[in-house]
Simulated scan of single mutants.
Amino acid sequence: MNNFDWKQLFNPEFYILLEFGGIKIGLYVVLFIVFAETGLLAGFFLPGDSLLFLSGIYSETLVKEFSTGNDFLNVTLLSAMVSLMGIIGNSFGYWFGKKSGNYLFKKQDNFFFKKKYLYQSKDFFDKYGSKAVVFARFLPIVRTFAPVVAGIAEMDKKRFFFYNVLGSVLWSFSMIFSGHYLYEFFLKSLGIDLKHYIEYIVIGIIAITTFPVLYKFLKKRTN
């Protein structure tokens, strides 16, 4: 603990390899973060896409306690667990939005809540409708508020549930499987261990996933 550096909080690898009392708790921390990103409004600053991609790289470590003895099944199990937490998180966000009504649009900004993100998510939802629940999964910040906006807009429960499941499955399986099998490809075919380039991977994923959000924001500012 004496060697703790607060900058580690911005490194997804820190959460994946986290231990408490000598016990690895990375899997449970990853699952909580996935839930918090959409289930708790404070989760917008947590690592999402990069965390799942790295979870694919470290899948063997994360599911060691529940290992099936088969590599493909282990990755599938991890993806399914993450997907389930994503579904639960989105459902909680939807419920909160439905119960709160327009209260959030009147709420004052604080460290954990930024009203501008809520408005950006509303614009995104207005543009894409029900499909926004799926698209938002791949966009940082927007995915935190999209289910809340869906609840405020009183989107049909069955329709929301369908797109919620679809989005969570596509997001978790695509990110985790990509991380796992790209890691294997680079290691076995090119002799490159991606674990030595984690910082570059995280920066690259953040740049790719946040570009659409930044572009939309800057475009809106210039109009």
Rank of each mutant, 00 (worst) to 15 (best):
M175F: 12
L78W: 15
T210N: 02
W95G: 03
Y15H: 08
V169A: 01
T210D: 00
E199N: 08
N90V: 07
F145H: 11
S189C: 10
L46E: 04
Y15P: 09
S121E: 05
G39N: 03
G129I: 12
R159G: 02
L139Y: 02
S178T: 15
Y128N: 08
L73F: 13
L62C: 12
K115I: 11
G39I: 00
L51P: 14
S189W: 11
R143F: 05
F113C: 14
F72N: 13
G151H: 02
R137K: 12
L194K: 04
E60N: 11
G151E: 02
F53M: 08
Y119V: 15
P212K: 00
F112I: 13
K131D: 13
F72H: 09
L46P: 07
N102I: 04
Y197A: 12
M1L: 11
F72E: 06
I25N: 07
K114C: 13
I33T: 14
D123R: 15
R143W: 03
K24T: 12
K216Y: 07
Q8T: 12
F145M: 04
L27M: 09
L190R: 10
G48V: 05
D5M: 11
A150N: 04
G39F: 08
E199G: 11
V30S: 04
F111K: 15
Y163P: 04
L118H: 13
M81P: 10
S79L: 08
I141Q: 02
Y197L: 15
F105P: 09
F138N: 01
S55H: 06
I152P: 00
F177Q: 09
V63Q: 07
N3I: 08
M175L: 15
L84T: 14
I152T: 05
S67H: 06
V75S: 10
N164E: 02
V169R: 00
Y119T: 14
L187G: 07
V29M: 07
A80N: 06
F44K: 04
T68C: 10
F35S: 03
L214Y: 05
Y128G: 05
K219M: 04
F14H: 15
K158M: 03
T210G: 02
N102M: 07
L139T: 01
V169I: 13
F186E: 09
G204E: 00
F4N: 13
G191Y: 13
I205K: 00
Y94H: 10
E65L: 10
Y215L: 09
Y28K: 03
K99G: 02
G129F: 12
F145N: 06
L190P: 07
P47D: 10
E60K: 12
D49L: 05
D156W: 14
I33G: 00
M155E: 04
I33F: 01
L187Q: 14
E154R: 09
V82R: 06
Q108D: 12
T76W: 11
I203D: 01
Y128K: 08
Y181T: 11
